[in-house]
Simulated scan of single mutants.
Amino acid sequence: MPRMVSLLAVLAALYLLACVALFVFQRSLIYFPQPRAIATPATTLRLPVADAELLVSVRPHEGPNALIYFGGNAEDVSLNLPEFAQAFPDHALYLLHYRSYGGSSGSPSEEAIQRDAVALFDRVHAAHPRTVVVGRSLGSGVAVRLASQRPAARLILITPYNSLQEIAARQFPVFPVRWLLKDKFESWKYASRITVPTLLIAAEHDEVIPRASSERLYTHFAPGVASLKVIPGKGHNSIAESPQYLQWFRAAL
């Protein structure tokens, strides 16, 4: 019996140690900063904020239309510039590099990224009154919250989740994720506040964000505000390979 008690004590101590490690290092499991592949002065906007300097990959264009894009947790958003420039010739493009991504300074967190998103929107909207907000994967949580705070013209969410907390709980089922997670990205909280036309695009075989999570998020929008489309045969990282991806994207604008 004493040996059993000692074993249980060791296992409990190891479990608590694992919980502490998960709490301390959790952001390194969420954010995977990437360098910029396209980094010329003509394609870069510097956006100073209170405690950092953000870099934004841009394609300038005069006129009322603009598109702001928030990417995934391991995405170099600059790689979208050539394709987006061709697909959306009438829109100015602004693709945010999160803190520590693509040369931006600072450390990423949900609240810091959200403040940065608001700062970028306010800057863009002042010059382009019809500003579309787009978020992919991690960025879908940024985009939906921003659209609940600012007058976006349209909202497009690609491989969106109901909440990051749900995804983390699925990946780490033995840990009390609800209590440990700092950045929960609870998109469902903001969906009901959205009043502009919204498109959700999910991948049929998404191995990172289950399609069911996108479907749950969809139910939180007011009736008639959002539509959900599923690209067949594609996964989380291959969704953009489908011709339907940009077709639906363009149609939503």
Score class of each variant (00 low, 15 high):
G224N: 09
V24D: 03
R154M: 04
Y245A: 09
N80A: 14
E215V: 11
A169I: 11
T43M: 07
R145T: 08
Y218K: 13
S140Y: 12
E53Q: 09
E111Y: 03
Q171L: 15
L45F: 14
H97M: 02
R178K: 14
D76C: 04
L29M: 14
S242T: 02
S148M: 05
P151K: 12
S192V: 04
S107M: 12
L200R: 08
L138T: 09
A21P: 00
K234S: 10
I30E: 08
A92T: 06
A112C: 00
V134Q: 05
P232K: 04
G71A: 11
R216V: 02
S140E: 07
G235P: 06
Y94V: 00
R46C: 06
I201K: 02
C19N: 03
R145W: 10
L155K: 06
Q171S: 15
P151N: 13
H125K: 08
G233I: 00
Y15Q: 09
E111T: 14
R170H: 14
E62G: 06
F84G: 11
E62H: 08
R59I: 12
W188R: 07
A119P: 03
N162C: 13
L45D: 04
T43C: 13
A152W: 12
I38K: 06
V124W: 12
S163A: 07
V124K: 08
A92G: 15
A50K: 02
Q244I: 00
S57N: 10
A9Y: 01
A251L: 14
R178I: 01
T219H: 14
S137K: 01
P35V: 11
R145Y: 03
V49A: 01
R130P: 01
Q165V: 06
P232M: 00
P173V: 04
R36F: 13
I156P: 01
A252V: 10
M4G: 15
P232R: 03
A18W: 10
Q34T: 11
H97C: 03
A126M: 08
L199P: 01
